[in-house]
Amino acid sequence: MLRRRPSIAALLEDRPPELLAVSGLGSCTWDLCAAGDDARNFCFVGAMGQAAPFALGLAMAQPERRVVLFTGDGELLMSLGVLATIATRAPRNLALVVLDNESYVETGGQPTATAGPTDLAAIARGAGIPDVRSVTASSALPELRAALRAAEGPLFAVLKVAVEELPLTLPHSLDGVTAINRFRDAVLSPAG
């Protein structure tokens, strides 16, 4: 069983300038923020189910960048259909990393469907995503880190992570306009 914050930190180690990160609401946003503030991150704090569609639109608009989505099992389960849309569009520069702790931690730890029979990797495969990986040990993270930067996408990775109570790390701003302006400026700046 992996630990979520060290896993994200490992995947973002020596982050290349072209890597854009999006996080789904809840724990993944706090985790991405805990890995260090970065203008190339866009962190959802609401609109559950929208992180993967947003990442798809971003990847389509920025084919020369790498787009990595970090989201949770609960957030993704709300919009499973988007996996079919992503598989059909097949953006080469998009990777989805699901931190699956099999529970809705933010709301009291109620089990998600992945605590039972539901297998997100199998769903992604069935949706038609060609590169699907399941990661259960930190020894596999360096290979995934390399894949997030270079492998032909779309890529879908499920990390089975422990349920942990972690300190809340908020984004640079909870104001949406401030957050999206900073992110968009970073995305569209030629230096980035």
Binding site: F54, M60, A61, R65, V82
Partner: peptide, 20 residues
């Protein structure tokens, strides 16, 4: 982009705008 449900289109259009 053919969507499976309309709300996907909200995120896609917003993400595309963030990317220019």
């Amino acid at each position: 982009v053919t969507l499976t449900t309309e709300e996907e289109g909200v995120g896609i259009v917003c993400g595309a705008w963030a990317g220019g």
